[in-house]
């Protein structure tokens, strides 16, 4: 009975003589990756494939996010159609700043969506156990598991805004062009570092994960010129929740505003330093993980 009932479900696996070439299980496994990076890319590709497989879901999510971003642009356009400047900032300038922020935020959401799942899924429901049983960096696994390609259109939108702003701005130097990707990536790190830092709270206090939600809301300030805010808020956005480093400080250099030059100069340091520090602390906090259901 057994062999015949098995052949109904698919090819018979047991009968093939050992050593014969051919892919018995139709598995595309190419053997171990040559490097750590290769392995991470393979992992990420697998996740991306799954996300793309839910096409309807993907399209809907992407559309929703674009809509939200689009409303902001409509608001900007209509605002500047009535007034030419806000505190000396012209429409193309705001557009450029906004575009930079959009690119960094979009990339952040593509890569670091896992931070939102940390509390509920990994700490409270205990999926951290699975992550810890694999010989890979736990933080990386969580982020890759929640790789969120749906937000790539936001990045494109941000780039389009930068492109749209360019004709109305003074020409950039070669150095400025070359440094632009660096500033954008370090903007991602500022955001990721800050939120990673706050995500550590989940290891200490059991909560549903609203802390980083609140902090993230505050990051919306990164797309506005800092000097339109009152002093205390400016300090807050520079030293406490350093969201002014995401886009504002670097953008001000591109826009020829020298009073924030120092901010632009140290932005990469702030981004890398904050992220590395937050990751270190996260690793320390992980030691306090208490798997549920002991």
């Amino acid at each position: 009975m057994r062999p015949s009932s098995r052949s109904v479900h698919g090819p018979s696996f047991g009968r093939r003589p050992a050593g014969q070439p051919g892919d018995t299980f139709g598995s595309g496994y190419p053997g171990p990756a040559r490097s750590r990076l290769g392995l991470w890319l393979r992992y990420a590709a697998m996740r991306a494939k799954v996300r793309l497989a839910y096409r309807g879901d993907f399209a809907l999510h992407a559309l929703g996010d674009l809509l939200v971003a689009g409303i902001a642009i409509v608001f900007l356009v209509s605002l500047f159609s009535h007034i030419p400047h806000i505190r000396g900032w012209s429409f193309p300038e705001i557009l450029f700043l906004w575009g930079m922020g959009e690119v960094s935020t979009g990339l952040f959401f593509v890569l670091f969506q896992g931070l939102w799942a940390l509390n509920q899924q990994y700490l409270l429901r205990g999926e951290m156990d699975r992550v810890l049983l694999r010989p890979l960096d736990p933080y990386g696994q969580i982020m890759v598991d929640h790789l969120n390609l749906e937000d790539l259109p936001i990045v494109l939108l941000g780039l389009a805004m930068i492109g749209w702003a360019l004709p109305g701005l003074p020409a950039f130097s070669l150095a400025q062009w070359l440094l632009l990707p660096l500033f954008l990536l370090c903007g991602v790190l500022v955001l990721a570092g800050t939120l990673t830092l706050f995500s550590c709270l989940g290891f200490l206090i059991h909560h549903r994960g609203t802390a980083i939600g609140v902090v993230y809301q505050a990051s919306a300030f990164n797309r506005y010129p800092l000097d339109i805010f009152p002093r205390p808020l400016q300090r807050l956005l520079t030293f406490v929740l350093p969201f002014a480093f995401i886009a504002f400080f670097p953008a001000s250099w591109y826009l020829g505003r020298t009073e924030w030059l120092l901010g632009a100069a140290v932005q990469p340091l702030v981004g890398v330093g904050l992220f590395v520090g937050a990751r270190w602390l996260w690793g320390r906090a992980l030691r306090r993980y208490r798997s549920p259901g002991s």
Binding site: H9, G14, Y29, P30, A33, L39, Y43, M46
Partner: peptide, 28 residues
């Protein structure tokens, strides 16, 4: 496949393991 990659299992060994698991556990 992904786990085999993470644990650096050689492709030939991996295939043998899959065949063993299919024989013993019927997971094919």
């Amino acid at each position: 496949d992904l786990l085999a990659g993470i644990f650096e299992v050689p492709a030939a060994v991996y295939r043998q393991r899959l065949e063993l698991f299919d024989r013993e556990l019927g997971i094919g």
